[in-house]
Every structure is written in structure tokens, then in C-alpha cells.
Design a binder for these strands. Structure first.
Length: 769
DNA sequence: CTCGCCAGGCTTTTT
DNA sequence: GCCTGGCGAG
């Protein structure tokens, strides 16, 4: 029975889901039912008989999104969906390479190097080329960017003013050669090589060759290479739909650009464009705020989200004294929400940088609220996991240089730097991989200066690895893991360490991941190979946080990882200058960098269905030292009238004094929580939620573990500090005023402290001496 | 060659 | 404030 699409979708969605052929560009705002359109489009293709499931490809960026898409298509097309190819860009590319490895000259068991691996390799090469190490990250970044644009070393023409460019080319060339010798492909290379297959010989990949219909999600985040891949496939396709939102392009630093989305109609003149602007997620206020923020950005496909929903509750704004109080306040507030019936899984705390999770975790821990962190610490990046994975990769592909380097002396085998570089020299001379060099005749190694002791150790290592490979050949991944641990005595090695037990547990988890993979493979009717398991390990973060108990937990994550998700109540924390927008974006003077931060704020705010809370603090610990913060320009840019109508809380933090005065009457009418005092063990949380007197902006609403001195500090009226006068500061002590910039709450005072030198301090943190 | 200590860098964000 | 990588002692 076909799905009654016209009942399930609004007219624009229906058009987007059913437009029959050729290129379709779907500009879909946040919460406009984008995934719904994609899944129904795929289902519609199959139901109308225009496509067989195996002719359909759907591509997204994150594994999370791919999984969700797959699950939701499965609901619409039970039993058929698994025949579709639903995948991330990178996994799709890996599959193409797997199938076309012969054409590409890659070994069957080629390994995928993550960013860490490639930086290490570039470092290695730079060392050999005598390049200063402070340039390594620059080169790594340049090479990565070139690969994002699918520019190979020989096509890279640095312009004459590009001083490092020449060496970039040199390093890049060497890097590509080394990857090839190691039988390895980096993230960028996956796309570049898939593009090569698509251009030259698409039939070399069985999966690729049969695709007739494609949907590409998050098209605003494709880089040049990915766009080229899509564009190359287009002529072979009966239909191609790209879906995206230029306002949610947040991966510029990774080479992404909304350019391909904005230019899509130019690239394919036959394109049918559809816009989805009706939002089904958030309240009117949240959308108004989001629209108000994002309209500051130039060059958009100006769309404006709207909703039939009501305005909803006011958006709350809180300014706290420091990051610990900010976390404590938000956690306490969320506790209240949970008490009044919000499910923990409907609460999310979003922040700009992972480092901001720490105070939150501590506060949640104290409040005994369960939480899960998405993103954060990645399972597969743990040292012991990477070590064992390196052994597994060597089983699949012994030539992998970075993996061999990683474990050749782990556990310790008395093979140190000296022996290793002699081996590398011998390998270079013989033009073979490090593994290949292990099999070189004694004389070749001796010629590289290696002593007999080193040669013996290497020989032993080579034998061990050879036996391990033989023992694992054709066996299931879980068996291979057991073999690795047993034959290398890796568990013994861990037991000697301080936190060895925890690391052993992680290896047990790795084994579990392998079992899970085998289970998945069985279900998908595919053989469970070590190669495919390793591919999963390389391309997925290994978040175990998607566990079944998540309904009982609140969620913590960066704004980036929040894209595509939604929650009833969202706390966006640290809405401050140098945080959101990031310090880097602020200091770079690069307008596009700031615009991207603004989009990030937009993404964050639009995650909330009903309750949105923004918080900021006056000082926070950055690298262990105190930094003074001011409210984000994204809030200060808001028209005062808008703020008065839709926000409650510490409005004085973001409104000019004049605008604040007229805001007060309205502010007084806002529902006002009872002032509370909560005693929880050693932590004292005191609230002062009463609206602040207009004349004395006491921004602090929560005080946590502060010295009495500091608590007593009150902003001096008018910030009137005359140069030459004496002042007191809680950290720096007594000092002399050198000058003043800004006015009101934004006033900064340059103060000279005899013991600390000159500092620029927000006026409210100073007292007259 | 290994171990342990210290300095310095790090924080954007992720496949 | 934490981690890594580099360096020096044994």
C-alpha cells in the first residue's frame, strides 16, 4: 500500500520528495522536516517503481545521521531499506575503494589513516627533510586543504609570494609516496580516489556502477572534492537531490563551503529548486531569535523560518560570575525542570568547545544527574585501543608504516629510535616498506649501520608478526583481537601500568565492538572481515554513548555535534566573546570566520523545541588561568526592542543602559522564580533571582565557593576610573589606572599592577583603593 | 634503551 | 589545568 504522501507532507515537502527526475536542490531550513523529505523521497522512488532499492544512494556527513536515515527509511520500507546504500561520504568512498582497489593499485587490505596518523607521517617526513617542527602543523594543514580540493601535488602551483608553498609541494609529494608505499589512504584521499574511480571507471566499483538515484544531505558542508564527486556522478543518474541549508554551514575549517549549494542551480541549469521554510520544531520566539541572529550574515539564500506554533516561553538569559557558577546554575535549573516533568533525555547542554564540559560534568556529578557526552573522548583514540588496532591493521596490511612504527616497541622489545631509523634508512634505500625492510638480507641492514643486536631484535619481531598474521588470516575480527593480545602479551604489558585495569576494560570493549560488528555483518548478509571491521574503526568514533539507558541521561555536546538533533530544553552555555564567537574567529579579523560562528550560534539555538536558555559568565578558566568575558556580540547585536519582547533574565548584560531602563517595567512583569537557597553537601548555591535594580547592575545571579572579598565586589557607578588613581583587584591586588576604554558594563580599565604588570580589566571587577 | 621529569602548548569544531 | 613530547640520567 503506497504511502499517502500528500497527507504526510506539506506542499513544499511533497514537491521535494516527489519531483521526478533531473537535479533537485532542496533548501531546507532548520527543523523544516528535511530528514522526512529525504526518507520519503527514497521510499517514493522505490514504491513508484522508478528505482530498485540497490539503485539508490543516500549520503550524509556523520555516522549518526546515516544511522538515523537508515532506520527511518527502514520504517517506511520494512525489509527493503537495507538494500539501499545509506552511508557517510567517507564510508561510501571507502567502499568504492574497497571494490575498485585493483583499478587504483591499492592493496586489498589498504588501511585508512586518520588525522592523527597523517600528521605523524608528515612529521616523520619533515624530520627527514630537516624542516623545522613548528612548521609541521602548517604543512599538515596545507596538505589537508589541498586534498579537500582534490589537488594532487603535481597540480599544486604555489604562487610566487607563497614562501612555504614550494616546500609544501615537496612534503606533499613525499607524503603521497609514503602513503602509497604503506598501502594507506587518508580521509581526504578516500574522497579523492573515489572521485578518480567515478571519473575514469565507475564500473570498477560494483556498488557505484549500479547507482541511478542519489540524495546528498548537508550539501552546504561538502568540500570541493566531495562536490566534484557528486557532480561527476550526476550525468549517470536518473535523479539527484541535494539538500542543505547555507545557514548551517559550520565546517569551513574542514574545507566545506556552502558555495556548491549556492551554485548548484548554475552548475545544473535544469535544477528544480524547493525551499522548506516552515519549521515544525521550535516555538515562535526561538525562531525569531534565530532569524534575528542569522540575518546579520551576508550572501545568504535569505530564507526566514516560520511556524504555526505559539510564541512559547521567553528565552532566558543568565550571566554568572564564573564558569563553575554557570554550570552549577544550569544544572540546578535543569534539576528543577526534571522535577517538574521534563525527561532527562530532553535536556541538552551545548557549548562551543569540549573543554567547557568539565565544570558541567562536575556540577552534574554533584547533583547526581546522569549524563552522556556525545563526541568528547573518543573510544578508538585511546592509546591501548590504538595499539591493538595497529596490530590488527598490520595483520590486514603489514606495509602500514605508521602502524608498524606505533607498535614495533610496544610492548618494549628493545627496538629504539636508533634501530628504527636505521631500518627506515634501509627501507628507503631499497624502496620498500618498513615491513619489507625487515626481510632484507643482513648486509642491507648492516649497510644502514645496524648492529647485530638490533638485527636480532628485528628478526624476532618480524617472526612474531608473521606468525600473528598467519594465525589471524581469514579469522573473525574478535578472534584476531584475542590472538594479538595473547601473542604480544599486551595484557601483561598493561598490567604493569598504573591504570592498567581500566585499559584492559577498554580492550574488552574493543572485543565487544568486534562482536557487535560481526553481528551486524551477519544481519546484513555480508562476510565479517577484518578489513571491514577496521574500516568501521577508522571511520566511526566508537561512541558507546548511544546506549539504551540514554533516556535517563541529559546530553552534553559541542554545538557542532548538535547539528541535526533537537531537544525540548536546550542550554547554550558560554555565549561570550572569545567563546562564541571563538577567540580565534574574533582575532582573525576574518569576516567569514565570524559569520561561521554566527551560524554555529544559529544551529545551537534552533536545536531547542520549547525552552531555550543562554548563559554566559564574567570570568572563566582558560588554560587554567582566569579570563574575563563579555557577552557575545551575537546577543549585543539584537535590537533592544526584540530583546525586551522575547528575553528575560540578565538583560542588562547585553542591553545598552538606556535601552535597559525602558525594559525594566516589562521585565518586572515577567514571571519571577522564588529566590532559593540550596544546600548540597559542601557546595553552597545561593540564588538571587530578583530582578536587579536598574541603577546597580549586579550581574551575578549565583555565587559558588567564592571568597568573601570577591563576593562583596560591586561594579562602581559609571565605571569612572581616572588615570593615576589607585584600584584594587581580587587577583592582582593594588594597582594604578593607566587608561579607560568603553563605557558602562563594557568599560575596560588598563591597570598597572606592580607585581603583575599591565592588565586590561573589566571595570566591574575593580574597586577604588 | 628505558624511564621519569619538566616545559610548553593547547582549545575550536570532525570524517 | 592537563597532556604530550623532548630530554637527560641510569
Amino acid at each position: 500500500m503506497p504511502l499517502p504522501l500528500d497527507k504526510l507532507l506539506n506542499p513544499q515537502q511533497l514537491e521535494a520528495a516527489t519531483w521526478p527526475e533531473g537535479p533537485v536542490c532542496i533548501v531546507a531550513g532548520a527543523g523544516s522536516g528535511k530528514t522526512r523529505v529525504i526518507t520519503h523521497r527514497l521510499a517514493h522512488l522505490v514504491e513508484t517503481g522508478r528505482a530498485r532499492p540497490e539503485e539508490c544512494l543516500a549520503v550524509t556527513f556523520t555516522n549518526k545521521a546515516a544511522r538515523e536515515l537508515r532506520d527511518r527509511v527502514d520504517v517506511l520500507l520494512p525489509g527493503t531499506a537495507y538494500r539501499m546504500w545509506v552511508s557517510t561520504f567517507h564510508s561510501a568512498a571507502a567502499r568504492i575503494l574497497r571494490e575498485a582497489h585493483g583499478y587504483l593499485g591499492l592493496p586489498r587490505g589498504f588501511v585508512i589513516y586518520d588525522q592523527d596518523d597523517s600528521v605523524r607521517l608528515i612529521k616523520q617526513i619533515c624530520g627527514e627533510l630537516n624542516i623545522a617542527k613548528d612548521l609541521i602543523s602548517t604543512y599538515a594543514h596545507r596538505i589537508e586543504q589541498l586534498k579537500h580540493q582534490a589537488i594532487p601535488p603535481e597540480k599544486f602551483e604555489p604562487d610566487p609570494f607563497d614562501i612555504p608553498g614550494k616546500r609544501v609541494r615537496e612534503v606533499y609529494t613525499a607524503y603521497e609516496a609514503r602513503l602509497a608505499r604503506a598501502g594507506a589512504v587518508d580521509f581526504g584521499g578516500l574522497i579523492v580516489l573515489a572521485l578518480k574511480v567515478a571519473r575514469e571507471n565507475p564500473e570498477a566499483s560494483y556498488s557505484l556502477g549500479r547507482i541511478r538515484h542519489a540524495v546528498v544531505d548537508e550539501y552546504q558542508d561538502v568540500n570541493r572534492a566531495q562536490a566534484a564527486l557528486v557532480e561527476t556522478l550526476a550525468p549517470r543518474l536518473g535523479s539527484l537531490a541535494v539538500v542543505g541549508d547555507d545557514d548551517q554551514s559550520i565546517y569551513r575549517w574542514r574545507g566545506a563551503s556552502a558555495y556548491s549549494l549556492l551554485q548548484f542551480t548554475e552548475t545544473f541549469p535544469a535544477t528544480h529548486q524547493v525551499r522548506l521554510e516552515e519549521n515544525y520544531r521550535s516555538t515562535g520566539r526561538i525562531l525569531k531569535l534565530a532569524n534575528e541572529i542569522i540575518r546579520q550574515n551576508p550572501g545568504r539564500l535569505t530564507k526566514e523560518l516560520w511556524t504555526r506554533a505559539d510564541d512559547g516561553p521567553m528565552i532566558r538569559l543568565r550571566q554568572l560570575r564564573d564558569d563553575r557558577s554557570e554550570a552549577a546554575w544550569a544544572v540546578d535549573d535543569s534539576l528543577e525542570a526534571i522535577r517538574t516533568g521534563t525527561r532527562p533525555s530532553e535536556l541538552a547542554f551545548l557549548y562551543r568547545t569540549n573543554a567547557q564540559s568539565r565544570p558541567l560534568e562536575e556540577a552534574l556529578h554533584r547533583a547526581r544527574i546522569r549524563y552522556r557526552i556525545l563526541g568528547g573522548l573518543r573510544f578508538y583514540e585511546r592509546r591501548e585501543v590504538k595499539d591493538v588496532v595497529s596490530y590488527l591493521r598490520l595483520v590486514a596490511n603489514p606495509d602500514s608504516e605508521m602502524d608498524l612504527r606505533r607498535i614495533i616497541n610496544v610492548p618494549a622489545r628493545a627496538i629504539g629510535d636508533t634501530t628504527l631509523s636505521q631500518l627506515a634508512a634501509a627501507a628507503q634505500a631499497a624502496k620498500v616498506s618498513l615491513w619489507g625492510a625487515l626481510a632484507l638480507p643482513e648486509e642491507a641492514l648492516a649497510a644502514a649501520g645496524m648492529k647485530a643486536a638490533g638485527r636480532t631484535k628485528l628478526r624476532e619481531f618480524g617472526t612474531m608478526l608473521g606468525e600473528l598474521r598467519a594465525a589471524c588470516a581469514g579469522r573473525a575480527p574478535a578472534v584476531a583481537i584475542t590472538e594479538v593480545i595473547a601473542r604480544t602479551a599486551y595484557d601483561q604489558h598493561l598490567r604493569l601500568e598504573e591504570d592498567g585495569q581500566e585499559r584492559l576494560d577498554n580492550l574488552a570493549s574493543l572485543a565487544r565492538a568486534a562482536n557487535d560488528y560481526e553481528e551486524d555483518a551477519r544481519r546484513a548478509n555480508e562476510p565479517a572481515t577484518l578489513e571491514a571491521f577496521l574500516e568501521r574503526v577508522s571511520l566511526e568514533s566508537g561512541d558507546e554513548n548511544e546506549g539504551a539507558d540514554s533516556a535517563e541521561s541529559v546530553t552534553l555536546m559541542t554545538l557542532h555535534s548538535a547539528k541535526g538533533l533537537e531537544f525540548d530544553a536546550v542550554y547554550v552555555m558560554g555565549v561570550e566573546e572569545d567563546v562564541l564567537p571563538s577567540a580565534r574567529a574574533v582575532s582573525s579579523e576574518d569576516a567569514e570566520a565570524l559569520n561561521e560562528e554566527r551560524r554555529l550560534a544559529y544551529v545551537g539555538f534552533t536545536r531547542a523545541r520549547r525552552r531555550l536558555t543562554l548563559s554566559m559568565c564574567q570570568q572563566r578558566l582558560v588554560f587554567g588561568e582566569i579570563r574575563y568575558g563579555t557577552p557575545s556580540r551575537f546577543l549585543r547585536e539584537l535590537p533592544p526592542s526584540f530583546v525586551r519582547e522575547h528575553l528575560v533574565g540578565d538583560l542588562h548584560a547585553i542591553l545598552p543602559r538606556a535601552a535597559l531602563a525602558s525594559a525594566m517595567p516589562r521585565f518586572d512583569r515577567a514571571p519571577r522564580p522564588e529566590p532559593r537557597s540550596v544546600d548540597r553537601g559542601e557546595t553552597r548555591v545561593v540564588y538571587d533571582d530578583a530582578p536587579t535594580a536598574p541603577r546597580r547592575p549586579r550581574a551575578t545571579t549565583a555565587v559558588l565557593d567564592l571568597d568573601v572579598d570577591e563576593r562583596d565586589m560591586v561594579a562602581p557607578r559609571g565605571g569612572g576610573f581616572a588615570p593615576g588613581s589607585g584600584v584594587l583587584h581580587a587577583q592582582y591586588g593594588r594597582g594604578t589606572v593607566e587608561g579607560v576604554t568603553g563605557t558602562g558594563d563594557n568599560a575596560r580599565v588598563d591597570v598597572f599592577f606592580p607585581e603583575h604588570g599591565q592588565k586590561r580589566i573589566v571595570a566591574k571587577y575593580l574597586r577604588r583603593a
